[in-house]
Structure formats: C-alpha cells, structure tokens
C-alpha cells in the first residue's frame, strides 16, 4: 500500500509521547489519579485494538484524546445511571432545600449564609491563576458526581446541551436544573474558599 505511512501509528512510543498529556486530561475530569491511570491504560489498549480504523485524518494525539474522551463520558454515564448521589431524582423543579428556605411566606428565599455574602468572590487585583485552578478543582471535587459530570462537560469541555443530554440520557430541563445546582454549589464553595 502506498499510503500506509500516512496512517502509521507508533504504539511503542505512546506512553512516552502522550502519557502525561492524556493523564492530565483525565485527572482534570475524574479527579482521582488511580482512576486516571486506568483510563489512560484503557485508552491505549482500545486504541491498539482499533488501530486499523485510524485514518490519519487527525494527529495521533487527537485520535487518542477522542478515545479517552469516550471513556470519560462512559464513567459519567455509569455514575449517572447508578444514581449514587442524593440527586437521583431530577423532576425539573428548581427548589433545592440545601440553599433555599422551605417555609411560607419565605419559601424560595435564600437560606441564611447560602446566598452570596459579598458582591464579588474573586479577590481584587490580579487573579492568582494557580490558586484559582486549585480552588476550582477542590470545589468540583465537592460536587455530587452527577452534577460534576454535567458541569465539566458544559464548562470545561464546552459541549453543547444536545450532546450532553444525548450522552447522559437526560432531558434538557433536567440539564438546566442540574447546571443550576452545580453553579449554586460552585459559587458558594469558591466564595468560602476565598474568604477563608
């Protein structure tokens, strides 16, 4: 075959060339180094099995990343369907007893301390990027798994809502509520981190 060179993959070099990159990609999304290592390994093995299907339309790295991405979405999907978090039921209602008062006539008002305390949670002056990264990671870690999955897909991977709904098998109204609940928690967590 004349064009085999274009489609050539080099599995012996994968760990050396892409190991750190794929590991970083995974750890930013599953927050567990053991799990991230497993995902990298599974990705390489799956890639090896599917290497006949590599057409050289993308680079080796892009191709491996797309396989890893599928694997990560699978872990989200498993978490979502096992409903391991207390957010199993998404009936589309916006009310969330962790954040709002439940008694009339104040139903739906902010619970003491759960709404914003200051105008701004970001510190004045130049943003300390390393600190921001650290806080965001810690706060994502504190999210219930299903909320973390939607938040990461939307805010880090910048997937559109149709894709997220399809991948997780949820309706758009569920997605909006879940994203709202994730933002509620992220905002509260980031404000507390910066004030402490």
């Amino acid at each position: 075959m004349s064009d085999t060179n274009e489609h050539k993959l080099d599995p012996q070099k994968w760990v050396e060339r892409y190991g750190d990159y794929l590991f970083s990609y995974a750890i930013g999304r599953v927050n567990d180094s053991g799990k991230a290592e497993d995902l990298v390994q599974e990705t390489f093995l799956a890639a090896l099995k599917a290497r006949d299907r590599f057409r050289g339309a993308s680079t080796e790295r892009t191709w491996l990343t797309s396989i890893l991405k599928r694997k990560i979405i699978d872990t989200y999907r498993k978490k979502y369907s096992s409903k391991e978090s207390s957010f199993g039921e998404h009936d589309g209602t916006v009310f969330d007893g962790d954040f709002y008062r439940d008694e009339e006539p104040f139903k739906g008002h902010w619970l003491e301390g759960m709404g914003p305390n200051s105008h701004s949670f970001l510190p004045e002056g130049e943003l300390e990027q390393a600190e921001l990264m650290k806080f965001i990671n810690l706060c994502i870690e504190n999210l219930p798994a299903t909320l973390a999955a939607t938040f990461i897909m939307r805010m880090i991977d910048e997937e559109d809502s149709d894709t997220i709904c399809k991948e997780l098998g949820i309706t758009p109204s569920n997605l909006w509520v879940m994203l709202h609940r994730a933002r509620l928690r992220m905002r509260e967590c980031l404000e507390k981190k910066w004030l402490s």
Binding site: G19, D20, F23, S24, I27, S33, A36, E37, V40
Partner: peptide
Amino acid sequence: ESCTHHLS
C-alpha cells in the same frame, strides 16, 4: 504547562 500532571 501549569495544569500538566505527570504519569508516575
């Protein structure tokens, strides 16, 4: 770079 983790 700031976000690079290294595979052990």
